[in-house]
Simulated scan of single mutants.
Amino acid sequence: MAPREITVSPSRPIPTGYAFLKKGIKYKTLHCRRLTHEAGKPVYIVEHRKKVLGICVPQPIFDQVQAQADETLAARRLATEQRDAALIRTAAAELDKQFPRIPKVDREKVLAHGFKKHSGRVGRTSQIPLQRKVLYAVSAHIRHAHTRYEAILDKGGNRDDARKAIQKTVQDTLRFWSATRGRK
Rank of each mutant, 00 (worst) to 15 (best):
P13E: 15
T16K: 15
T16G: 09
G17Y: 07
A19M: 11
A19D: 14
A19H: 12
F20A: 08
L21W: 10
L21Y: 09
K23W: 13
K23Y: 13
K23H: 11
K26P: 08
Y27N: 13
K28T: 08
K28E: 15
T29L: 13
T29S: 09
T29I: 15
L30M: 12
H31Y: 14
H31K: 13
C32W: 06
C32G: 00
C32N: 07
C32Q: 07
R33F: 09
R34D: 04
H37A: 11
E38C: 00
A39E: 02
A39T: 01
A39I: 02
G40E: 06
G40T: 07
K41M: 13
P42F: 11
P42A: 11
V43D: 08
Y44H: 14
Y44G: 05
I45K: 15
V46K: 09
E47N: 10
E47L: 11
H48M: 12
R49G: 01
K50I: 05
V52D: 08
L53Y: 09
G54Q: 11
I55S: 08
I55P: 01
C56Y: 07
P58N: 09
P58E: 06
P58G: 03
I61W: 04
I61K: 00
F62H: 15
D63P: 00
V65W: 07
V65S: 03
Q66A: 14
A67R: 15
A67Y: 09
A67T: 11
A69H: 15
E71W: 04
E71R: 15
E71K: 14
A75S: 07
R76Q: 10
T80Q: 14
Q82G: 00
Q82E: 14
R83D: 09
R83N: 05
D84Q: 15
A85M: 01
A86H: 02
R89G: 01
T90R: 07
A92L: 03
A92G: 05
A93F: 05
A93L: 07
L95V: 00
D96F: 00
Q98I: 06
F99M: 05
P100A: 12
P100V: 10
I102G: 02
I102F: 10
I102Y: 10
P103G: 05
K104Q: 11
K104R: 04
V105M: 08
V105W: 01
V105A: 12
D106I: 07
R107T: 00
E108P: 03
E108V: 11
K109V: 13
L111Y: 04
L111G: 01
L111P: 01
L111H: 02
A112I: 03
H113F: 10
F115L: 10
G120Q: 08
G123W: 04
T125H: 05
S126K: 15
S126C: 07
Q127R: 14
I128K: 06
I128N: 02
P129Y: 00
P129E: 03
Q131F: 07
Q131P: 02
R132P: 02
K133P: 08
L135K: 10
L135V: 14
Y136N: 11
Y136H: 12
A140V: 06
H141N: 03
I142C: 06
R143E: 10
H144S: 12
H144V: 10
H144P: 05
H144A: 12
A145E: 15
A145C: 12
A145L: 07
H146Y: 04
T147Q: 06
Y149C: 08
E150K: 14
L153R: 13
K155Q: 15
G156L: 10
G157Y: 05
G157S: 01
G157H: 04
N158S: 04
N158F: 01
N158Y: 03
N158T: 04
N158P: 00
D160P: 01
